[in-house]
């Protein structure tokens, strides 16, 4: 028995030593500050990731990541702001699909492993107490990413602006709608966490005295017409609530951009992004000049900007 226990002890010690060395090498990933340029920070999912080019702003960073739920945006934003005191304005993506429960499924289902692998440096260890996630996969991510191998790659959660030069891919509309709203057949439902973490983003930016603007990038009319009513209702309710809270909501979802400006049915391509970025810049600048965004009464700023739009 002693001989076996001794062998096991030696083997486990060697393994533990290997894991500990990797932990020492990788620990900085949890603590290293992230350095961002500019006073404007663009956060959210693939919608702003493809539609707001930070290079067109005076000084901005885009750290959007495809498929990012508000839960993840919140923790990422928190880290970015704590590490970059110069940020005074946050542009956050705000669209219909943020309200679909499919975003939560990415944290609870098969794909949660890839999500945690990207975001673990900014996620709190008590996340499973706040939302329903696959706990095994969540904690295992920390073990794997911090101890199994030395990891020198840049923070995987940062994302950035993505240029898509090509034109509308008409093949995937049905699949996109199914993925966003009907993953398992019937309507997938409204995310229970979207409101909660959007409120967290609002509270956090307010507390830090940072201006928050919610930006809704254009969607193709074919996509819009297929969005479930439940999603539209939830979106509009939240939009109204945010507006009443004094948050500027720049809702350009219903703008009829030409097909040549879309990469697919719910994302702009590079050309579309250039036009849309200019539009957002002008809109923000006008609002600042007018001071209209406080307790604003404009429901849809797109209504007053139609003349600026190409191919309308």
């Amino acid at each position: 028995m002693k001989q076996l226990l001794k062998s096991i002890l030696i083997f486990c010690s060697l393994m533990a030593g290997y894991l500990a060395i990797n932990l020492l090498i990788n620990f900085h990933r949890l603590t290293d500050p992230i350095s961002l340029e500019g006073n404007v920070l663009i956060v959210g999912d693939s919608h702003l990731n493809t539609s707001l080019n930070p290079d067109q702003f005076a000084s901005a960073s885009n750290i959007c990541m495809g498929g990012e739920a508000y839960i993840l945006t919140f923790y990422k934003l928190k880290k970015a702001i704590e590490d970059n005191g110069q940020i005074d304005h946050v542009l956050c993506g705000f669209s219909y699909n943020n309200f679909s429960a499919y975003r939560d499924a990415r944290l609870t289902g098969e794909k949660s492993k890839s999500q945690f692998s990207k975001y673990y440096p900014v996620l709190p260890l008590d996340l499973p107490e706040k939302i329903v996630v696959n706990e095994t996969k969540f904690y295992h991510t920390f073990l794997r990413e911090l101890t199994l191998y030395p990891n020198f790659s840049p923070p995987p959660y940062l994302g950035g602006f993505v240029k898509y030069p090509y034109e509308l891919d008409k093949a995937n509309l049905k699949e996109t709608i199914r993925k966003h709203y009907y993953t398992n057949g019937p309507f997938i439902g409204i995310s229970p966490y979207t409101e909660q973490f959007l409120d967290s983003i609002v509270s956090f930016t307010t507390e830090k005295n940072i201006e928050l603007t919610l930006v809704s990038a254009p969607l193709h009319r074919e996509y819009r017409s297929r969005i479930p009513e439940e999603i539209k209702t939830a979106f509009n309710k939240t939009k109204l609530r945010m507006t009443r809270k004094g948050i500027l909501v720049l809702d350009f979802l219903d703008i009829s951009y030409n097909d040549t400006l879309f990469k697919d049915y719910d994302h702009l391509n590079y050309e579309g992004a250039q036009i849309f970025t200019e539009l957002i810049k002008k809109e923000i600048s006008n609002r600042k000049m007018n001071g209209a965004h406080k307790k604003q009464d404009i429901e849809n700023p797109a209504d007053i900007r139609q003349q600026d739009l190409p191919n309308n």
């Binding site: 083997f11 060697l14 393994m15 492993k113 095994t136 295992h140 073990l143 794997r144 199994l148």
Partner: peptide, 15 residues
């Protein structure tokens, strides 16, 4: 043995 343990730890989350 180490290779097996490493791979087990790596893929463990798919329980």
């Amino acid at each position: 043995y180490s290779m097996c343990v490493w791979l087990i730890l790596f893929f463990f989350g798919e329980e």
